[in-house]
Design a protein around this nucleic acid. Structure first.
Lengths: 224, 224
DNA sequence: AATGAAAATGAATATGAATTCATTTTCATT
DNA sequence: AATGAAAATGAATTCATATTCATTTTCATT
């Protein structure tokens, strides 16, 4: 499955999601995927709470009952949307955040790449699922947790790639700074995810440029 | 009413909140305030959706019906919590963010004060109401809107106070930078509001210090 | 094409919290 | 302390979706 592709079947990971029922026939796989794709797109427009199962079924051209032969309940369905999303994000992360590639880029371009990667994830087709996950972050199963895991992976590679890369390198200090950069990037992007009224927005390139600038300044690449 | 005080009666603004019913007797005012204070405290522990009206009534030592003679519905109740919160925040903002005071502080200390003020608001007794408002930001009445209004007020005063204050002053550029700073502060604090797992947290002073440092670097006060 | 398993159907049901309201109690004014 | 208005009471009701299930249809294998 490609980062933005909705035609590749979602086989190989949806099978293992709790509450996603076995789909043994081609027909049922097709319907299941159509539910998933409809959900991903719908969440770019509205909250999951406003999507009723009858609505969803109608949209996919089938019946309420078919939904419940594919998913144990609405919660399992949302879980499936999240797993699909995190899978796509992780593919993109693994492709772009390798220690090797980052070493080649060097710290300055590497930091820009960090901003770009995170901006790309937050403006992808999965934006709605990310938003819904964020807004449900306090629910018992913490739908944002997998994003944190991915984030830790990204940071680990960055720390490793950029060891010694900064002028007057001090290990602890460099790690601390990089961590704060990341927290800043995520904070600003999460803020943009739920808020349409800011000066700097992912709708144009202003947020991305602002973040690049802020990160570079903070890491002392301000004027270089 | 003081920023952290729960004993001063909430008279003078709750009366005008849509769906908050008239309270003509001392008893009803007391009960109303007790509902409000209970709600503010409860939202530091759990989501509004998990608080049932019977729970709330029991907690306040009265009955479900009394809730409905004070508030038109649960929505009006939440509105009252928000109005109380924004009132307290605005008091604090008005006290600390005057053009005069900021001019006296100068740009560097003024920026630190911005971080401190925002950190204080986000760690106050009203933190839970702010969190609930943020997590419901996409609902029709946008409970976060008043925060944005306050934010605009803060920024207006900062822009005015710091005109010409930066080295090699360029009006547009200075405003842009200051706006980004603010968006960064709010982003990071909102992130902290819903997320317990970050390296830098408002639970200790690490987030505040990190933000100060980032803001000062970005505004070119890094090493001074 | 016969067969049994899998899947789809959608009207009927379950669920759970918000809200109502007939009645009782308290307040404030005389 | 009598009186009417305001407020409190909490069991019963409403309401909106999620979910079920008896029945029908489709699939895949022989």
């Amino acid at each position: 499955m490609n980062f933005e592709d909705k035609d590749t079947p979602l086989t190989g990971f949806l099978e293992n999601v709790a509450g996603v029922l076995e789909a043994n026939q081609a027909r049922s796989v097709r319907i299941r995927d159509s539910y998933i794709n409809a959900g991903i797109d719908l969440l770019n427009e509205e909250r999951l709470g406003h999507v009723t199962i009858p609505d969803l079924a109608t949209l996919c051209g089938c019946s309420v009952g078919s939904f419940y032969t594919r998913f144990k309940d609405k919660e399992a369905y949302f879980r499936a949307l999240r797993v699909t999303t995190i899978h796509a994000c992780n593919m993109e992360i693994d492709r772009r955040v390798t220690v090797e590639a980052l070493k080649k880029l060097g710290p300055k371009k590497g930091l820009e790449e960090l901003v770009d990667l995170m901006s790309d994830l937050f403006t992808s087709r999965y934006r709605g699922v990310l938003r819904e996950s964020l807004l449900r972050i306090l629910e018992p199963d913490d739908p944002w947790a997998p994003m944190r895991d991915s984030a830790r992976g990204i940071m680990a590679n960055y720390h490793q790639a950029f060891e010694n890369a900064f002028e007057g390198y001090k290990p602890k200090e460099a790690r601390r700074r990089l961590s704060f950069c990341f927290q800043m990037i995520v904070g600003v992007l999460q803020n943009d995810l739920v808020n349409d009224y800011h000066v700097f927005s992912t709708k144009d390139k202003s947020l991305r440029n602002g973040l690049r600038e802020a990160v570079l300044h903070y890491m002392n690449f301000g004027d270089r």
